[in-house]
């Protein structure tokens, strides 16, 4: 059986709370001239998060057995676009803005719907060149350039 999301989330928040509570103890306690140091606020919040995530786990435990809704999900589309987005981000600084954006958009457009490759190429090219020219040439911004081979 699949674990309900609330369990995982509850445990994750519990760990985050624990992390902040423990780690905030390592921050030096007081700054010069103020009565309360930088450690109190995160410490108290960490504690609160601990308490509420325990409560969430308890609530989830009580509600166990509730039916999990299952719908029709487009996992394939989603993962292709997600992975190409990650690749896009990691290649942005190496192959430059125009090329990476063009490739990402083309792949994503074609993943969404396989028809009309010419139009997809045109739209991706127009977007990547357009943004680059507008931003870099007109507004004087900085984006990773196309590397010179």
């Amino acid at each position: 059986m699949k674990l309900p999301f609330d369990y995982i989330a509850g445990l994750a928040f519990l760990l985050i709370g624990l992390f902040f509570t423990v780690e905030s103890r390592k921050i030096s306690e007081s700054a010069y001239g103020s009565a309360v140091g930088p450690d109190i606020f995160p410490f108290v919040l960490g504690l609160l998060l601990l308490i509420f995530s325990l409560r969430l786990l308890y609530e989830t435990f009580k509600k166990r057995g509730a039916a999990v809704k299952r719908g029709n999900y487009h996992y394939k589309k989603f993962f292709i676009i997600l992975i190409s987005a990650i690749l896009y981000v990691s290649l942005l600084e190496t192959i430059g803005y125009i090329l990476s954006t063009f490739l990402f958009l083309l792949v994503a457009f074609q993943t969404m719907e396989r028809r009309g490759i010419v139009k997809s190429i045109l739209v991706s090219a127009a977007f990547s060149f357009g943004v680059y020219l507008l931003f870099v040439e007109l507004l004087g911004g900085v984006l990773p350039r196309l590397p010179l081979f």
Binding site: I81, A85, Y88, V89, F104, M112, V131, F135
Partner: peptide, 20 residues
């Protein structure tokens, strides 16, 4: 507006915006 173009472009604008 076809979702085909809209959704990837939103991703691209987000990436551009945050990077800029």
């Amino acid at each position: 507006t076809p979702k085909k173009y809209l959704l990837p472009i939103i991703v691209a604008i987000s990436v551009f915006g945050v990077y800029a």
